[in-house]
Amino acid sequence: MRGGHQLIQTFAGTRPGDSIADILFALVQADFMKATRERLRTEGLLDDAISQLAYGEASAEAQVVKTQRSLSLVHEEFLRRAMLPNYAPGKTEVVFSLRGAGAPALRQRLLVRNGGLLPFCTSKGDQQVHCVRHYLHLGGYVLDRPAHLMDILRHMSMAHSAIKPLCRPVLRDGRIPLKVRRMCLTSLALSCASTTCATWSHLTGAEEQAWCRGFVRLARTLGRDDRWTGRPSLPDEKAVCCAFGLPSPRAYLRQQRLLHFQRLALTQPALLDLLLAEFRSAEQSWLSLLRGDVLWAVGLGMMPAHVAADFPLSLPG
């Protein structure tokens, strides 16, 4: 114990901060995930709405019913492991992206008339969880409708906060090699700004402009640009990226999507199947966006031509 001189040995339970506590929680969580996934699969609750749109019928009501049943199973599996879920606002919340028949009316009933509360049954009585329009997850916003402007602005703000103490003493110090300063910017700022960028769908004009402006503003921290004479040394995006050896914001975004697909192919085959189902059933999908990235890479000679011909099956993992 801090301030003491004796070795204290615990005989029952753990406390936050114990090295064994994280290990035990990871073991319990892994067992929970395995059992929950098996129960959901047995009851047919892993048949997602995207696959149903591609191969059958789907309704908004069915999405809500499946969510209620899934919450019941998850609650039971937590209780079996002496874990009590916290359904307070900001702790456990549900974001619905309702599609199909009856979606507008159901959205109105769920978010307005019911006060955003979704009830579900458990063996210990009825519970309810809050439904929200957006949820903050891993530093990024998950929204009920495709929109990324809030996510872009938040990540750019976080990136600037991360490097603010280093701008003058490190990033703009010409005595430090540019390669080292660029590595610092990439690891601290660009990695923060691009945490969720690979998962974005097609960007609107305003969203793309916000991304490009934020990227260039981060890149400018690597040098001192004379912008007060009316003839700036780095007047635009191209000049900034060329001066510091960085890719353009759009090229960087394409690269992140290609790297993200590589991770999906290697580690998340179930999610990849969902993306393939969406690709077959929707005019605009994440994989259709990735196909544009592949065509871009093929045009630059970075990939062989046959990759685009048999997309996405021939795309290397």
Rank of each mutant, 00 (worst) to 15 (best):
Y252C: 12
C167W: 05
R220C: 14
R254D: 00
S201A: 10
T221K: 04
M158H: 09
A219R: 06
S194G: 12
L171I: 01
D151K: 00
H148R: 10
K164H: 14
C184V: 15
Y252I: 08
C241F: 09
D151Y: 00
Y141P: 07
P146Q: 02
G230W: 02
G214H: 03
L246A: 02
S161D: 14
D151G: 00
V170G: 06
D226H: 10
L234W: 09
L171D: 01
L136W: 01
L185P: 00
I152R: 05
K164V: 08
I163V: 11
R213N: 14
Y252G: 02
T186Q: 11
L218P: 02
Q256I: 05
R254I: 03
G174I: 04
P146I: 03
T229A: 07
L143R: 12
G230P: 03
F215H: 08
R250D: 05
A193I: 08
R172D: 02
G223L: 09
L234C: 06
A210I: 10
A251C: 10
A243W: 07
R224M: 11
Q256K: 13
K164E: 11
D173T: 01
T199M: 13
L171P: 01
K179N: 11
T195E: 09
L253T: 01
R181F: 00
L143A: 14
W200T: 04
L143M: 10
R250T: 11
C184F: 14
A243I: 05
R168K: 14
R213W: 00
V216R: 02
P247S: 13
K179C: 11
D225G: 03
A147F: 01
L166E: 03
R145V: 15
W211I: 03
V240W: 08
L222C: 01
S201W: 10
R231F: 13
R213M: 10
P146L: 03
V142P: 08
G230N: 04
A219C: 15
K179E: 13
K238T: 15
V216K: 08
M183Q: 15
R227V: 15
D173G: 04
R217V: 02
E208T: 06
R213D: 07
Q209A: 15
M150Y: 05
C242N: 13
L188A: 12
R231K: 15
D225T: 07
S194M: 14
G245F: 00
G205N: 11
A193E: 05
W200G: 03
A162D: 08
D144Q: 13
R172V: 00
F215D: 02
H148M: 10
G174M: 06
T229P: 02
R213H: 11
L153E: 11
A147N: 12
C241L: 10
G140W: 06
R182A: 11
D173V: 02
Y141A: 04
F244T: 03
G223V: 10
H160F: 11
R168L: 13
L166W: 06
C192G: 01
M156D: 01
D225N: 15
R182T: 11
L253E: 01
C192H: 06
T221N: 15
G174Q: 06
R181P: 01
G140M: 09
W211R: 00
I163R: 01
C212L: 07
L138Y: 04
T199F: 04
